[in-house]
Simulated scan of single mutants.
Amino acid sequence: MRQALLIVDVQPCFGPPAWQVEGVAKLAPTMHSVATVERHDEAVTPFWRQLGWKPAVADEPLVPADKVFVKHGYLPPPELIGHLKDLGIERVLVCGIQADTCYLDAGFMLFDAGLNPTLLKWITVSSSLDRSASLGANL
């Protein structure tokens, strides 16, 4: 089964712990890897208006990946799914930040696309903004 790694939003504005960045950085070179990076555009996703917080305008991933996809909001961009399907990927290992929102949304999007997501809990955390994971419940 061809597999790839999806790194969800491991970027400076979310303050990932060093152990997570190190763990993801060790795994990423062992297979094809893609990363998402959240960037703020209030016209696309009203983070500031609805949450009183916004991601950085120009953050970059903290872990090198074979391909990076910029996103605005919780879901990965549809181009990410197309990229994985074009490569013949069947299983996607998912790790990252925002365990209660973006990370789960990515898993469900992969599932709906038939890409067999496997969520890697050991290198996943909730947001530095909300370690309690109540942000997802509030939304």
Results as ranks from 00 to 15, higher is better:
residue 1 M to P: 09
residue 2 R to T: 13
residue 3 Q to W: 09
residue 4 A to N: 01
residue 7 I to P: 04
residue 9 D to E: 01
residue 9 D to H: 02
residue 10 V to N: 03
residue 10 V to Y: 02
residue 10 V to I: 09
residue 10 V to R: 05
residue 12 P to H: 03
residue 12 P to K: 01
residue 12 P to L: 00
residue 13 C to G: 11
residue 14 F to R: 04
residue 18 A to G: 10
residue 20 Q to S: 07
residue 23 G to T: 03
residue 24 V to A: 05
residue 27 L to N: 10
residue 28 A to S: 10
residue 28 A to L: 07
residue 30 T to W: 10
residue 30 T to Q: 14
residue 32 H to Q: 12
residue 33 S to G: 06
residue 33 S to C: 03
residue 35 A to D: 00
residue 35 A to C: 04
residue 35 A to S: 08
residue 35 A to V: 06
residue 36 T to I: 04
residue 37 V to E: 01
residue 37 V to M: 02
residue 38 E to C: 10
residue 39 R to H: 04
residue 40 H to M: 13
residue 40 H to E: 13
residue 41 D to M: 02
residue 41 D to P: 05
residue 44 V to H: 08
residue 44 V to D: 07
residue 45 T to E: 15
residue 47 F to R: 10
residue 48 W to A: 14
residue 48 W to I: 10
residue 48 W to T: 14
residue 49 R to D: 12
residue 50 Q to Y: 15
residue 50 Q to K: 15
residue 50 Q to E: 14
residue 52 G to R: 00
residue 54 K to Y: 13
residue 56 A to S: 09
residue 57 V to Y: 10
residue 58 A to R: 09
residue 60 E to L: 03
residue 60 E to Y: 06
residue 63 V to Y: 01
residue 63 V to D: 00
residue 63 V to W: 01
residue 64 P to T: 03
residue 65 A to K: 04
residue 66 D to E: 08
residue 67 K to F: 09
residue 67 K to M: 13
residue 67 K to T: 13
residue 67 K to W: 07
residue 68 V to I: 08
residue 68 V to F: 02
residue 70 V to E: 07
residue 72 H to D: 05
residue 72 H to V: 10
residue 73 G to K: 06
residue 74 Y to D: 13
residue 75 L to A: 15
residue 78 P to R: 06
residue 79 E to S: 09
residue 80 L to A: 08
residue 81 I to A: 07
residue 81 I to N: 06
residue 82 G to C: 10
residue 86 D to Q: 12
residue 87 L to H: 03
residue 88 G to K: 04
residue 88 G to A: 08
residue 89 I to G: 00
residue 89 I to E: 01
residue 91 R to K: 12
residue 92 V to Q: 02
residue 93 L to Y: 11
residue 94 V to I: 05
residue 94 V to E: 00
residue 94 V to T: 01
residue 95 C to F: 06
residue 95 C to H: 03
residue 96 G to D: 06
residue 97 I to Q: 03
residue 98 Q to E: 14
residue 99 A to H: 11
residue 101 T to M: 15
residue 102 C to M: 07
residue 102 C to Y: 08
residue 105 D to W: 14
residue 105 D to A: 15
residue 105 D to G: 15
residue 105 D to Y: 15
residue 106 A to G: 05
residue 106 A to V: 07
residue 107 G to L: 04
residue 108 F to A: 14
residue 111 F to P: 12
residue 113 A to L: 04
residue 114 G to A: 03
residue 115 L to K: 04
residue 116 N to C: 11
residue 117 P to Q: 01
residue 117 P to I: 01
residue 117 P to T: 03
residue 118 T to E: 15
residue 118 T to Y: 11
residue 119 L to A: 10
residue 120 L to N: 00
residue 120 L to E: 01
residue 120 L to W: 01
residue 123 I to L: 07
residue 126 S to P: 10
residue 127 S to A: 05
residue 129 L to R: 08
residue 130 D to C: 04
residue 131 R to K: 15
residue 131 R to S: 14
residue 132 S to W: 05
residue 132 S to E: 07
residue 133 A to D: 13
residue 136 G to V: 07
residue 138 N to W: 15
residue 139 L to N: 11
